[in-house]
Amino acid sequence: MDIFSNAPEIIKPNYPIDTEIGKIVGLVPTVTEIVVLVLTLFYLFFAFLLTRRVKIMNTNFKTPLAPVFSLLAFTNLIASLAIIAITLLTLIK
């Protein structure tokens, strides 16, 4: 879906501008990955806090699902680390 497909011929840019826009558009995936990396770093902090919170909850109120919650919180933390690693590998490529 080209967002400029309905523009009349007379206002479509010339070749030099096409190249410039192409360069700018080419940066979008990299910028997206950097934004996701920053957001995932924030999420990593939240995931770590969640593991501590689950520990406090399981200490104050013991339930049969305590090991399940601890495992899920830990898995959440590992998953955020994995996404950070994947994003870094994609950026480095």
Partner: peptide, 11 residues
Amino acid sequence: VYKVHIFDGPS
């Protein structure tokens, strides 16, 4: 945008 894909697969 001008037939250039904005996002690629990995991103």
